[in-house]
Simulated scan of single mutants.
Amino acid sequence: MAVTKKINKSTLEAPRIPDHLETLTIEDYEMQDKQVFENGRFTQGTIANHSADKVSFDRVVFENVLFDQVNLERAEFTDVVFNRCDLSNVNFRDSILHRVQFNNCKMLGFDLSTSTMRNVKFDQCNAQYSVFRFADMKQVCFAQSNFDKADYYEAKFSMIEFNESGIDQAQFSGTKLTGVDLSTCRFQSIGATLESLQGCIVGSEQVRGFAYLLGVKVKEDYQ
Results as ranks from 00 to 15, higher is better:
2 A>M: 11
5 K>Q: 12
8 N>T: 08
8 N>R: 09
9 K>C: 05
10 S>W: 10
12 L>V: 08
15 P>W: 08
16 R>Q: 13
21 L>C: 09
24 L>T: 05
26 I>D: 01
34 K>V: 10
40 G>K: 08
42 F>T: 09
49 N>Y: 13
52 A>C: 01
54 K>T: 08
54 K>P: 01
60 V>A: 01
64 N>P: 01
64 N>D: 11
66 L>N: 07
73 E>I: 08
75 A>S: 14
82 F>T: 01
85 C>V: 03
90 V>D: 05
93 R>M: 10
100 V>C: 01
104 N>W: 09
104 N>P: 01
108 L>H: 10
109 G>H: 05
111 D>G: 00
112 L>C: 10
114 T>Q: 14
119 N>E: 07
120 V>I: 10
124 Q>L: 15
126 N>I: 11
126 N>A: 15
127 A>T: 05
139 Q>I: 07
144 Q>I: 13
151 D>G: 03
152 Y>K: 06
155 A>P: 09
157 F>Y: 09
162 F>H: 09
165 S>W: 04
168 D>R: 02
174 G>D: 06
177 L>S: 02
181 D>F: 06
182 L>G: 02
185 C>Y: 05
197 L>E: 09
197 L>M: 14
201 I>C: 06
215 G>M: 11
217 K>S: 14
217 K>E: 15
220 E>R: 14
